[in-house]
Amino acid sequence: MTDTTNALPPAEGLLTIGSFAARARLSPKALRLYDRLGLLRPAHVDDTTGYRYYRAAQVERARLVFLLRGLDMPLARIAEVVERQETDGQAAADLVTAYWADVEERLAGQRTLAHYLRGRLSGRSSELYATFEVHTVDVPEQWVITEKRHTLVEELPVWIPASLARLEAAAEECGGTTGSPFVVYHSEVSQESDGPVESCVPVADPEAARTWAAQHARAWNTTARLEPAHRLAYTRITKAQVANPQIHAAYEAVEAWLTEEGHTYAGPCREIYFTDWDTSGPEDEVCDIAFPIQPG
């Protein structure tokens, strides 16, 4: 049955939904939504009529929910903030600060992406690619230990460093590292496509590598394999350029160069991390964006 503003409260101190909505400066419709979402439950619901009743003390929570929804905050985080606010206002404020920092970081990335897309759609792609110099290098065959995983793009910033750290630690059991770690993209990785992606570390001892990979295959989907000799076309980017959309522009710059030079792809693209990420600054070169190509 529909709540009414004229229904009598079942006990002194309770407000009808209409009276409470007026005091909270919200609509009854909004209050019903907050109830349905589990963000603001009525103090009492009449078993017979279904009328909702609230306490005056719930006004502050109702207004807080309304304001937090204005930030497009997810429901789970709203619930966390309003619950924390009742016992620790500063902790609740810190939750809002952390959420908004995430929002601003996302907006900054989207702003940069919009700038990139405007240039691309207006036919100025060549200007975007001009900052990336493309070179080639011949890489000898090498044994690598690897982890492979299906993952979406938002998980990469966590999984890549974690997997490479595990592999570099394991390399000590495999004769040590013999080259820079790299990440191979066997298929598209995006918000809709999950690869797979393979983290790789070159090692010196093939037999030890095979033994280690067999021992850890179940936990980390590890392998040891021989990476054949190949030629790479690559461009070098800074730590700041690893972020979207700059890294996409780097990939497209190499692909545009391959088309212009008439080269043929010989394998999946990869990112080669040749220096310590944690100690590098935003303008330090940290990574090669590379494509295997046919020699010639």
Results as ranks from 00 to 15, higher is better:
Glu141Asp: 15
Tyr116Cys: 04
Val189Leu: 10
Glu192Arg: 15
Asp205Arg: 00
Cys287Arg: 02
Ala213Ile: 02
Ala171Val: 01
Trp220Cys: 03
Arg23His: 08
Pro10His: 09
Arg69Ala: 12
Glu252Pro: 06
Cys287Met: 13
Ala224Asn: 07
Thr112Lys: 14
Gln191Glu: 14
Leu67Asp: 15
Pro9Thr: 13
Glu227Val: 04
Gly109Asn: 07
Thr259Pro: 04
Val153Asp: 05
Leu107Trp: 07
Asp3Thr: 11
Thr48Leu: 14
Arg111Phe: 02
Arg32Leu: 15
Pro196Gly: 09
Pro140Phe: 12
Trp220Gln: 02
Arg124Phe: 04
Glu147His: 15
Ala224Leu: 02
Glu147Thr: 14
Trp220Ala: 04
Gly18Gln: 06
Ser193Thr: 08
Ala62Glu: 11
Gly175Leu: 08
Ala30Arg: 12
Ala243Tyr: 12
Glu172Trp: 05
Arg231Ala: 03
Ile160Pro: 01
Ala219Tyr: 02
Gly123Leu: 08
Pro196Tyr: 02
Ala256His: 15
Pro206His: 11
His186Met: 13
Tyr234Asn: 00
Val82Asn: 11
Ala249Gln: 09
Arg210Pro: 01
Pro161Lys: 15
Ala290Val: 00
Thr259Cys: 04
Arg41Gly: 09
His248Asp: 13
Trp143Ile: 06
Arg231Tyr: 02
Val45His: 08
Arg61Ala: 05
Leu117Met: 06
Gly119Tyr: 05
Asp288Trp: 05
Ile78Lys: 00
Leu68Lys: 10
